[in-house]
Amino acid sequence: MNNSKTAWFKTFYNQIRSLLTLSRGGKERFTEKLFLSISLLPVLLIVLLVVALWLRTQPILETQSIWSLLLGQTWHPIKSQFGFLPFIAGTMWVTIVAMVFAVPVCLLSAIYLSEYARASMRMIMKPLLDLLAAIPSVVYGVWGMLAIVPWVQNTFAPFMNKCFSYIPFFAVNNPTGFGIMAGGLVLAVMVAPFIIAITYEVLQAVPTGLRQASLAVGATQWETIKYIVMRQSLPGVIAGVVLGASRALGETMAVLMVVGNVAHMPTSIFDAAYPLPALIANNYGEMLTIPLYDAALMGAALILLLVVLVFNILSTLILRRIVRRSRR
């Protein structure tokens, strides 16, 4: 035992020594190989993420079909009933509400910053967006509980109830303020710096020559934006919005704290919901005590991962093409 240990140590020591005494060319070749193999880790990590989650989801896929899981509406872990539909619906509701608020505001801000704002304004913008992006999601959650939830409960929901209660979409059946609306608003603020930064980049990538040509034939600046800049940058803007949506999909803590966490199919934007990330985060404690529960939660993580992967790969490819074209 001891002998083999020293032998192992000796080989290790010799390896290190031979490395140190390598010629410059030898070191160069060694580091190149080392750096290359480390660089392949991210690619490997994506594969590992999918495979590991898929393997852990296997037990539940053996007992139930994938469709009964995705489309099932009852969630009774003790009775081994795992229907993800309420959670998937909750995720989608919250994300869509967030994007409805975030997209117009972010787009207009980015256009303003890119086309109208002075250089000094842009200098302020960068640190401001960085700060907004740096705030931890738990702090967003605290802010949501302290500011957004009471506002929805006392101001926004009663107002909508008074004016639009005949539309089921806006009906207020939930008096607490914790719900899709609050979650969506908090998320909208969270993804804003992200969407603004990407859209700004995309707008900046539109060639100046195009703008000048449009202005030269007599278009106003707004007409140039409307007919030239926006049309040119549309794919990039869409890609940025999709990236923002995939951020929103996976956001956990902030949403968990304000969204109410009731497992049902929401029918109104003021209902409580239970998005997938919140489901995973809330139940990690008991997941090893109930059979198949851990497989179900890992399945939830797998669904999230796959959706986010698809969104991200597509939009990253689009964005990359745009930015590369402009750098040429």
Partner: peptide
């Protein structure tokens, strides 16, 4: 872009 909860699960 992978959500942190997925990293947590992994």
């Amino acid at each position: 872009g992978v959500p942190s909860i997925v990293y947590g699960a992994f």
